[in-house]
């Protein structure tokens, strides 16, 4: 399997098989909270992809070159990086792309507490390529962050689609809101089992 093949497997894995939301249970708050409308889900998804990709590359460098011997600072360093990054991204977007800021702005601060972002950063430090041997390099980490964000966005959008549809029907009262969202997540997780065991 060439490098491209490995990247492909990484993508399939991050998006479908080991989807951050459905199989690792990370990023559930925004998944359940910002999935009521397709538009906002799309905005959130884009913001997450952006931040996850950036975070993955920066935390890789921090982990590799700054934290050597001080692994106990990993959590604190990563979370500060993410917080700073989100702040920075927010400022940049606000200045350079006010229209984008208008649609993404509200979601950006939420990303700080999106555990999927911290999760990707932490998991990247110990992850191996699909060959099962090689640790991630800078590019792998960045790509993995990107794919994980895409995986998050895909399920977020699907969820938003279903929930918008359910808005129009008569749900049982006790199921409205969180319960139905959780059951939907369960159903999606079951459906995503179809991707299990992909061997390319």
């Amino acid at each position: 399997m060439g490098y491209l093949g490995q990247i492909f497997v990484m993508a399939i894995t991050a998006i479908f098989i080991q989807n951050y939301v459905l199989s690792r249970f990370l990023g559930l708050c925004p998944y359940l909270g910002v999935s009521k409308k397709i538009d906002s889900a799309f905005g959130m998804g884009m913001a997450v992809i952006f931040v996850m990709t950036l975070t993955s590359s920066i935390t890789y460098l921090i982990n590799r070159y700054l934290l050597t011997g001080m692994m106990y600072l990993q959590t604190i360093a990563f979370i500060l990086t993410i917080a700073a990054l989100v702040q920075f991204v927010e400022m940049v977007i606000q200045k350079k792309a006010p229209a984008l800021y208008k649609s993404l702005g509200v979601y950006l601060p939420l990303i700080t507490t999106n555990c999927a972002v911290l999760g990707v950063a932490i998991l990247n430090t110990t992850a191996l390529r699909p060959d099962g041997i090689t640790p991630y390099n800078f590019l792998d980490s960045t790509l993995n962050g990107f794919f994980s964000g895409v995986g998050f966005t895909v399920v977020l959008l699907a969820m938003a689609g279903i929930r918008m549809r359910l808005e129009l029907v008569n749900l049982p009262k006790s199921m409205k809101g969180m319960p139905i969202a959780l059951i939907l997540a369960g159903i999606m997780a079951l459906a995503f089992y179809g991707f299990m065991g992909f061997k390319i």
């Binding site: 397709i38 689609g161 179809g194």
Partner: peptide
């Protein structure tokens, strides 16, 4: 061809069901 299961009909329909509202939209 590449999945973990020998047959994929159920899962493929189930997965497309999940994306149906998006396709509609």
């Amino acid at each position: 061809f590449v999945g973990g299961y020998p047959e994929g009909v159920s899962y493929s329909i189930l997965l497309m069901n999940v994306f149906t509202p998006l396709i509609d939209a």
